[in-house]
Amino acid sequence: MLGLGILKGLVETARNFLGSYIDKERLVTVQFPEERLPVAEAARNFPFLIYDGVDPEQGLRCVACQICEKECPPRCITIEKSKDKKPDFVGKQQFYPAVFDIDVSVCMSCQICVEVCPFDAIRMDNEFELSTTDRFGGLLWTKEKLARPNEHYEAIHPTEAAEVEARRAEEKAQADAKKQPSTVTQ
């Protein structure tokens, strides 16, 4: 019978429409600004720089090795190395970035800077409401804006952060052991 296929289809549409009143599975729309879905743990948006402790200037993990600057596919990172050095978490003297800028209007959130960083200094943030009225300055993030405490990293990526923390603790223990061999032998 001509039109039977259309009727069957309409039954399907009606089932979805009426079903949305009783079945949560069929009611899929999320009214965004009022309702929010939880952000996935692995979700990534733009990079940030991690610092330990309370002082963003003193605790910044970045040693300005410029690997991420070279590997970044769209070349959105600008780093200038410092003239002097400061001690890092194991007490070794390291350079630090005098300038560390990320142009987030160019960044494509690919996470390659995170993968290549040997110092666990750069990680991906999951903040996504970042609109600004300042087209140039507002999208060029400087060192001060990029620096976030390690607690922030632990809060947004707990599983990954736990692994990194364990590895860093081990490295620190090894470095301490090298410094004072006598205490280890006891």
Binding site: G5, K8, G9, E12, R15, N16
Partner: peptide
């Protein structure tokens, strides 16, 4: 199954 019920037999689509 639902999707095909909605579309495949539809006379207009055919």
């Amino acid at each position: 199954d639902e999707f095909e019920q909605l579309l495949t037999g539809n006379e207009i689509l055919m």
